[in-house]
């Protein structure tokens, strides 16, 4: 039996304390221990980007981090984007994806959104080349990326219009 480690992690502004095995991946911690299943698990070896979260404000892949390493750190997941489930309360980034048809099955979308949130804050008016570079670490098997690029352009404009945005993370 492995030793359990007690970790305290702030996720989407709320503090959680759990006793966990050190080998537990951060992605599984979010999904199974905290029930935050918005973070998706695709490849589980750091290639597909579906599990991207913000760790202390920076996008990282939660499937190649240990949950125990998040002790004392702050995490944002896709659940933090919209205020609630009402369409009018979606984050402008989500509205951009919706309106430009930036998703089909939606599996990869949480990873794209969490990758793009800090990117658009740093690049409020990105070029297509910058957008393509920014999403190069996220795989999508449905869209062929063109609609995602369009969605990012649309979202960039929307985010500039609503600086504060309705969501908690904006």
């Amino acid at each position: 039996m492995e030793n359990l480690f007690t970790v305290t992690v702030t996720v989407n502004g709320r503090q959680y304390e759990r006793a966990i095995e050190p080998r537990l991946l951060l992605s599984d911690f979010l999904r199974h221990e905290l029930g935050l299943t918005g973070t998706h698990v695709g490849c589980e070896h750091g290639v597909c980007g579906a599990c991207t979260i913000l760790f202390d404000g920076q996008p990282v892949r939660s499937c190649i981090m240990l949950a125990v390493q998040a002790n004392g750190h702050e995490i944002q997941t896709v659940e933090n984007l919209a205020l609630d489930a009402k369409p009018e309360n979606l984050h402008p980034l989500q509205v951009g994806f919706w309106e430009a048809h930036g998703l089909q099955c939606g599996f990869c979308t949480p990873g794209f959104l969490m990758t793009l949130l800090p990117f658009l804050e740093e690049h409020p008016d990105p070029s297509e080349e910058e957008i393509r570079e920014a999403i190069s670490g996220n795989l999508c098997r449905c869209t062929g990326y063109q609609n995602i690029v369009d969605a990012v352009k649309l979202a960039a404009g929307k985010m500039q219009e609503t600086q504060a945005g309705p969501g908690g993370a904006a």
Partner: peptide, 9 residues
């Protein structure tokens, strides 16, 4: 080197 997500770690 890899992608931004990887370079952050």
């Amino acid at each position: 080197i890899a992608h931004a997500q990887i370079r952050n770690r």
